[in-house]
Amino acid sequence: MNGGLPGSVGAVDPTLLVIVVIVTALAFDFTNGFHDTANAMATSIATGALRPKVAVVLSAGLNLVGAFLSVEVAKTISGGIVDETRISPAVIFGGLIGAIVWNLVTWYAGLPSSSSHALFGGLIGATWVASGTSAVHFGKIVEKVLVPAVASPVIAGVIAATATWLTYRLTRRAQPKAATRGFRLGQVASASLVSLAHGTNDAQKTMGVITLALISSGSLGAGADPPVWVILSAGLAIALGTYFGGWRITHTLGRGLTKLEAPQGFAAQTSAATVILASSHLGFALSTTHVCSGGILGAGLGGPVREVRWSVAGRMAVAWLLTLPLAGGVGALAGVTADSGTLGVIAVALAGLVIGGGIYLASRRRPVGPRAVVDELEVPAEPTPVRAVA
């Protein structure tokens, strides 16, 4: 490594580089917010429990609050998956660029992939190439990332399917309109809980990255907790991203995966919030996207019609499988380039800006905003039912 070491040929000023990493980490946090807005609010919007703009304002505020509830996940990132003593801020910068690029690509495609796994992939790839395999803690990655990635959507799906089935059984004699109103009110509470959980889990990942950069530059001691200013800035960044909304992914999760009624939306959100909050307490850096998608699938299968668009689910699964390796590949290339010195950092920054700007301009040709979501809810297209195996 030489990108963060004073005195090396072409070395970047360490203080300036840390500032660049912090700004880039907050930019990733912003993309995480608008990429994952759908996790908390898609089902509430789909069932009419909340209007789109109200939903994103509520979600943004609760994401900010959630950022202050725990630092266990942040500690997993800053001292768990890679050796913080063997990487420079330049390597972390490259990993962040890999995560941001993948987030923007999947956002443009409307695919609810994992921002968390994009971040892990970018950091792992950059660290691996710059410092070797011994700098990557594969045991911790399996324990804290891969196992939760597989188990969490399954657990959330089983809970949601069971809760949905029980809900319809217990309310089958209730007046339909009264029951729907009750479940929509319940959805407001459960959606709020998911937003709180999202801030607790996902904002911490950016806190962890900034803390990792501060440790690797010597500004903090090894194993240090995130400072208060790091917690506040990460919470604000993810809240702002959430406010601007990820309508492309909201469309996919809210209507593209399955058609949800209010009881199903309530069950999906409650199961997701339970799994996320429990995992945050244990320090598991899981994907809220995986959990919420599993909850929605489970709710669709537990309902009376059991309809799921398996083609959409298949596209999502492919994106999930590709996230770690592809974000890792981009992160590896960006990390080793940035670690070469000042010109490398500039080249990576410019490449990130060009790719991000290109994706944004392409998205303006086919915009998806809150009005489009509302129009679809007012005149919904009925999906073709696919009968699940009992």
Rank of each mutant, 00 (worst) to 15 (best):
S190G: 06
S70P: 00
A327R: 07
G314K: 13
F183M: 13
G3D: 04
D83Q: 11
N39R: 06
S192E: 03
A319R: 09
E261W: 05
R364S: 09
V54E: 10
P89G: 02
P112H: 09
L240W: 04
G235W: 02
A239Y: 02
A38V: 07
I87L: 12
S114E: 11
P148N: 12
A203V: 12
S78A: 14
D339S: 11
L119A: 06
T180S: 11
A278M: 08
L282N: 05
D225T: 14
L69Y: 02
T24W: 10
S44Q: 03
T206F: 01
A67I: 09
D202L: 04
P370N: 11
K140L: 08
V374Y: 05
A222Q: 13
G358H: 00
S116A: 13
T47P: 00
G122T: 14
I100A: 10
L361S: 14
A197Y: 01
G94K: 10
I238Y: 02
V101T: 15
E72L: 05
N32A: 00
V65A: 14
T384M: 07
G256Q: 10
I19K: 05
S287R: 09
R366T: 15
I238C: 05
V158Q: 05
L236S: 03
N39C: 04
V194F: 03
M207K: 05
W102R: 13
G369Q: 13
T127R: 08
T167S: 08
V330M: 08
M316L: 13
I100P: 07
V91T: 15
A317K: 08
V105F: 10
I296V: 15
G356P: 02
A156H: 03
V56M: 01
A151F: 07
T274E: 06
T242I: 02
T206Q: 02
P385C: 13
P370E: 15
A262V: 07
A74Q: 04
V12L: 14
T342R: 10
S44R: 03
G335D: 07
A189Q: 00
T274D: 06
V57N: 04
A390M: 13
L236M: 10
V374P: 00
G369M: 14
A191W: 00
A272L: 06
A278K: 01
T252P: 01
T85C: 05
A351Y: 11
A234Q: 02
A278E: 03
V54G: 09
V12C: 12
R387K: 10
F120T: 15
R248T: 04
R173S: 03
D83L: 07
N39W: 01
P176H: 04
P370M: 14
A149P: 01
A349V: 12
P227L: 11
A99E: 07
N103K: 09
N103I: 13
G208C: 09
H281Y: 11
S279W: 10
P383Y: 08
V318M: 14
L220Y: 01
A49Q: 02
L277I: 14
T274L: 15
N63I: 10
P304K: 12
P14T: 09
A149D: 13
S216A: 15
V275R: 03
A149I: 11
T274Y: 06
I296R: 08
G94N: 09
L50C: 08
Y168H: 01
